[in-house]
Write a protein that binds this DNA or RNA. Sequence first.
RNA 1: GGCGCCAUCGUCUAGUGGCCUAGGACACAGGGCUUUCAUCCCUGUAAUCGAGGGUUCGAAUCCCUCUGGCGUCACCA
Length: 413
Amino acid sequence: MVKVRFAPSPTGYMHIGGVRTALFNYLLAYKNKGEFYLRIEDTDQKRLVKESEEIIYKTLEWLGLKWEGDVVRQSERLDLYKKYTQELLDKKIAHKKEGAVWVKLPEEKEFTWTDLVGSKKISFKGKDVDEFVILKSDGFPTYHLANVIDDSAMKITHVLRGEEWISSTPKHIYLYEVLGLKQPEFAHLPVILGPDHAKLSKRHGAKSVFDYRDEGFVKESILNFIALLGWNPGEDREQMSMDEMIDLFDIKDINTANPIFDTKKMEWLNGVWIRTLNEEKKLKDRLEEFYKNEKDVLSKLNAEKGCDLVNAAASRMRKLSDFKSLIDFKYNRKLTKEEKENAKTLLEFLNTKLGNDWDSDELLLVIKEFSKNYAVNFKNIFFLLTGKEQGIGILELNEIFGKEFFIGNLKRE
RNA sequence: GGCGCCAUCGUCUAGUGGCCUAGGACACAGGGCUUUCAUCCCUGUAAUCGAGGGUUCGAAUCCCUCUGGCGUCACCA
């Protein structure tokens, strides 16, 4: 059975790179009907950020990446690491130096594994790998030791992690060997680069997943886009739901080159997902969640015609945050003298041509007639009627707000 | 610098010796639909497949060299 884990260290927020690693682990697990675990690697007391463990949970939950069983926290397993350290000390594999415990790889030995990403052999000579610490002087293990012991204890079968770990892998292989532990398969994902072609990292201002959420990205498009970054399902496929990704996923299809994270395509994909969500009748809920602290938006959303408003806005949104301006009908500029004249004429025209109730089909015909007779183009008419330069269609607004909405706009100062 | 990974349109990518005078998507440009804006549809611009050598009847695809990019070289992960 395939068992994988996502093992972040709680040093701050979750960025795109971290989520990508989590997602691919998740996909590998679910594709193979295996299990996906979460382990918190909190062995560095200095870099530890209190809230970040909570952020990790919240992020994974928001994205729908469910993990199996209890979270493993390394800081609670110090005895285990000390036991293995003692074993290595006894075997003279490790030695003490300056208060820490170190390990040096045999110089002439080769450490080789077949990496699942790109199905290629990677090999390091012992002499090219620096001596490293396994137990720090504060009694905490380093990543190398804790990672190997825990992956073994948790019976992890596949280690999917960032490519930045490639040069540490010989250390891990050596530890598995001397400890007599079963070595998992390794798969190293190419690191994601920023638009500046440097590794996407917190230091370089990589945004947190929650930043994207707060900008109005839906989880479906974030997941979908990240998956496309370095993985191709083998057909000309862009939009994929989680279930479809699980179905199509194959670790062999992961790319070996470093992708550049460019949000332009993600914005497009977000728009595609917003429309899909609307078809599935889920968009309104997402908007309510997104605008939970904005009373004005919420009340319009929950008004009688709220659903129609969402429908009318859906095709005009790329982000959930676009909704607000779409339904905001405050005038952004005053009418000119000429426009005022036109508005007055248009109002009279509409009143004489249309009955008490404005039927949308008739309304369109009347507007066309007005446009022709008075040589006012539709763009201007739209502005006179809605107070905006662009946005939700006149006919849609008529269905939602009725004639009073237009009359009010035509009478404005 | 040592070691390692990588290299197809601006970006994400398809492509595993002939189907490739290189396909799709985003972006961009033009057009259609709609007399707003979008959505939707169509068309176009865009890679001499990093460079140079081989191998082969034939190479984006295999080999070598170079160049470039990235990663890593912490008692961080």
